[in-house]
Each structure stands twice: as structure tokens, then as C-alpha cells.
């Protein structure tokens, strides 16, 4: 009985994944659905006006808005920025307590329990996508009932950041293992990807050549954020296309 079980377990092994994301700036319309979806999924605290005014608002994913030109010949570029899950992450090496480290799936994991709040990682992160609990987060009752039981609530003095919704990744993996099958592309998505109405965000396994995300990563429009820093981000940005290119004018 027991050896058979062992054998069974050996027989099935989940393929190792390399999670990544593609962000299509041509599709993104700045609707901010991802921002609120992320708040709802990950128990991100609402800090309130006073703290927000002091620069303590937390949005794991934010939509950066950049103007180009001046009125009336003006354009805007939206650029959703979330943790880039760098392979050479500048934030990881500086953490004295291994609160920030690279897990086996290439994710830049943040272990809240280990964090003592040096905030070094946030300084080191060139994408500025680490958020710190400057005050103890509070939810006016009964807003606390909205909290997702799958995600730990962070207390004061802890750094937090986008996890690619690791709770969803784990749930999907457990399910797949239970059913003895490999994960399918698009089987599950982080909260931001799931709600993005324009499908500007695409999530998947970069090591799977057939996945949407790995195909998008090979696009002509593909670029990385601050590529010259050599951080090897796993988020690919698909730059905005130009209508004029295609019209040859």
C-alpha cells in the first residue's frame, strides 16, 4: 500500500514553472480595475486621507500616467507598474533577514513574518513597487469581513508588494497535483489579470513556449522596464503600436 502510494507520487510531478506577465500598453485604457481588484484580493489596507497625503498609500499595481507634448498637441501614455519579479532583483540581496528572496518558481517572494522593516529593499527597487505599512492597518467594522482569508494581513512595520497572487498560484498547483495533471495556460490568473477588461494584462508560464505570455514576450513591441539596469524583469511591456506605421504614411 505505502510503496504504491509512494510510486504514485513519484510518477506525477508538476512541471517547474517560470511565471511572468505581459502588459500591453496598447490595450491598457487606464480604467484602474486592476488596482481595485488587487486591493480586494490581497487585503491591501486603505490608509485614509491623512496618511495618503503623507505618501503612504499602497497600490501594488499602479497605472503610471505620462504626458508627452504640450496642449493641444498632447498625448498620454499609461504604464501599469507592478512588481517586475526580477530574476536579478536588487531588492532581494539587500534584505538582512531573507524576507525578500527568490523562490523556486522565479517569483520574488516577500515573507512578511521575516520582515523587520529596514525598508532597504524599497530603496533598492528601481521600480518603486514596494509598499510599507507605516501605520497599523485598520478596517472599520464590518469592512474587516471583506478580508480574503487566503492572504495574511500585514501589520505595522512590514514591507509588502505584489506577489502575482501567490495564493491563487498555490491553489491551482494543489488542484493540479491532486488531479495529476499539468497546469493549463490561463487556467487561473492573478486578480489584476482576471479583471482587466481590455486584456492588457496576460499572465502565464514563460518557460512554456505555447503560453500566451511567452509568445507575447517575443513580440516586436516587447520591452522591459528600465532594461539597462540588468534586473531581468519577468514583466514584459508591449509598447504602444502606431497606427501610422501600419498606414505607411
Amino acid at each position: 500500500m505505502a510503496p504504491a502510494k509512494e510510486q504514485n507520487q513519484k510518477a506525477f510531478r508538476l512541471k517547474r514553472r517560470n511565471w511572468g506577465m505581459a502588459v500591453d500598453e496598447d490595450r491598457c485604457t487606464g480604467c484602474e480595475a486592476c488596482v481595485v481588484a488587487c486591493h480586494a484580493e490581497n487585503n491591501i489596507a486603505t490608509v485614509g486621507e491623512e496618511q495618503a497625503a503623507r505618501g503612504r498609500a499602497m497600490h501594488w499595481i499602479r497605472i503610471e500616467r505620462y504626458y508627452e507634448g504640450t496642449f493641444p498637441d498632447i498625448k498620454v501614455k499609461y504604464q501599469p507598474v507592478l512588481c517586475q519579479q526580477c530574476d536579478n532583483a536588487p531588492c532581494e540581496a539587500v534584505c538582512p533577514t531573507y524576507a525578500s528572496y527568490h523562490n523556486a518558481e522565479g517569483l520574488n517572494a516577500q515573507i512578511y513574518n521575516r520582515c523587520i522593516g529596514t525598508r532597504y529593499c524599497a530603496n533598492a527597487c528601481p521600480y518603486e513597487d514596494r509598499y510599507f505599512n507605516f501605520v497599523n492597518p485598520a478596517w472599520d467594522e464590518p469592512l474587516n469581513l471583506q478580508l480574503n482569508p487566503d492572504v495574511s494581513v500585514r501589520s505595522v512595520g512590514i514591507m509588502e508588494k505584489c506577489t502575482f497572487c501567490i495564493q491563487r498560484i498555490r491553489a491551482a498547483e494543489i488542484n493540479a497535483e491532486k488531479e495529476k495533471r499539468q497546469l493549463k495556460d490561463g487556467e487561473f490568473n492573478p486578480a489584476c489579470v482576471q479583471s482587466c477588461p481590455t486584456e492588457a494584462l496576460v499572465f502565464g508560464d514563460l518557460d512554456d513556449p505555447e503560453s500566451r505570455v511567452s509568445r507575447l514576450a517575443k513580440s516586436n513591441r516587447a520591452a522591459k522596464l528600465l532594461p539597462d539596469l540588468g534586473t531581468k524583469p519577468k514583466v514584459t511591456y508591449l509598447r504602444r503600436g502606431s497606427w501610422y506605421d501600419e498606414q505607411n504614411t
Binding site: 503612504r56 525598508r119 524599497a122 507605516f134 501605520v135 505595522v156
Partner: peptide, 15 residues
């Protein structure tokens, strides 16, 4: 008592 928020530190000036 109030957390490090009692300082003027914020994002991105963590130090």
C-alpha cells in the same frame, strides 16, 4: 506606539 508612521518617512523616501 504609533508605528514608524510617526516619522515623516513615506514612499519613496523610505530612509
Amino acid at each position: 506606539d504609533h508605528g514608524i508612521g510617526a516619522s515623516g518617512l513615506d514612499r519613496p523616501v523610505f530612509w
